[in-house]
Amino acid sequence: MTEPGAEGAARDAGARRSRIGSTALVVAALATGVAITSQAPDTDARQRPFVRVGVMGEPVDGRTFQGAVVAVRGARRIARSGKTRDTGGVWVIVRARAVARDKPTSIDHASVRDARGRTFLATMRINQPLVAGGYVMQPGISVEGDIVFEVPQASAARLTLRLADSSDVRMDAAIEIPIASDGPTVDRWLAEPSALPVEDARVVE
């Protein structure tokens, strides 16, 4: 014997509404989750360094040290420790001054970024006077020295220097200082035939 049609239909309609409602809730929850995770920063963004931006000539606080850019030079050839090195691009030599804050500190990350966002680490073709293990700074003692980079000619006119006390800059302080020059200056650097000397770091009195 079949059930009265009206009651059965009403019960079926109710069950269908319930199923549609549950499915809609699940879809809404999933969509909300996807929306949240797509907006949340990825690991690289979450672990990015705390960058303090400065200008040439002014000291910038890098948490464990203070750094400043004193001058920028360039050349086709450099001389260091009795050897001459040439390049297919341009040597960019940044004269920097730095002082440790309250414990022995070395600048273990030095890079320049060009206008296209490409990063060039300090060269390893010479023993660097100030960075990459070249000098451990003692607190309160200002030291000045060259940081040497090798970059393509097209990148040399617009660079941003980044310095940090650790080679791993994740979630730590880093200082950034634009060191822009211009095309004619870079051409002048490249036209000079003699090798530019890169000297040892020295204490600033």
Binding site: D102, V136, P139
Partner: peptide
């Protein structure tokens, strides 16, 4: 070995200077 000063700063033995 580290030297400690009155401000709490520390200094390495045999430094680059």
């Amino acid at each position: 070995l580290l030297l400690e000063d009155a401000e709490g700063r520390t200094f390495d033995a045999d430094p680059a200077e």
